[in-house]
Computed example of a mutant assay.
Amino acid sequence: MILHLGSDYFAKTKNIVMILDYEEAVSNEDTSLFLKGIECVKITEEDPKSIIITQEKDERRGFLSPISARTLLKRSKKFELNDENRVLR
């Protein structure tokens, strides 16, 4: 399945490693260090609400999306959320 990330960007759900809330990701020291090693593309001029990490073969890429992580998770149908917005699988 293909997931629309915003603007003209799409990703295959099988290549999505994680979808992160932008504010939480950049405020967490460990996550910030992890993201520094990944090339991230800001896909619109809007403020990012989420970070999508994809991996195809040995290449990891990040996309800064104006769409919230929760919305992307719902659209992907790859993950399930419980009532507390925690990923179940």
Rank of each mutant, 00 (worst) to 15 (best):
E29M: 12
T54S: 03
L64A: 10
S32C: 10
Y22G: 00
E24N: 12
E84N: 14
I51Y: 04
K78G: 02
K74R: 14
I53A: 02
K36H: 12
N82E: 03
N28G: 06
N28E: 11
L88R: 12
V87E: 11
D30K: 15
I43V: 12
I38A: 05
T13Q: 00
T44F: 03
E24C: 07
K12A: 11
A11F: 06
I19L: 00
E45F: 04
K57H: 13
E84A: 14
E46D: 12
R89H: 13
I52V: 08
N85Q: 09
F63K: 00
R86G: 12
D21Y: 00
Y9K: 12
E39C: 12
M18D: 02
E46V: 04
K42A: 14
T44A: 08
G6I: 09
K78T: 05
D83H: 13
E46P: 00
E80W: 13
S27R: 14
N82M: 06
L33S: 10
D83A: 14
V17G: 05
R86I: 15
K36C: 08
T44E: 06
P66W: 05
S68D: 07
L3Y: 04
F34C: 08
D30G: 15
I38E: 05
S50V: 08
I67Y: 05
E46G: 07
D21C: 01
L5E: 00
S32R: 15
I51V: 07
E24D: 14
L73R: 15
E46I: 07
N85M: 09
F34Q: 08
I67V: 14
S65T: 09
E59H: 13
R75H: 12
K12L: 10
S65P: 03
E23L: 06
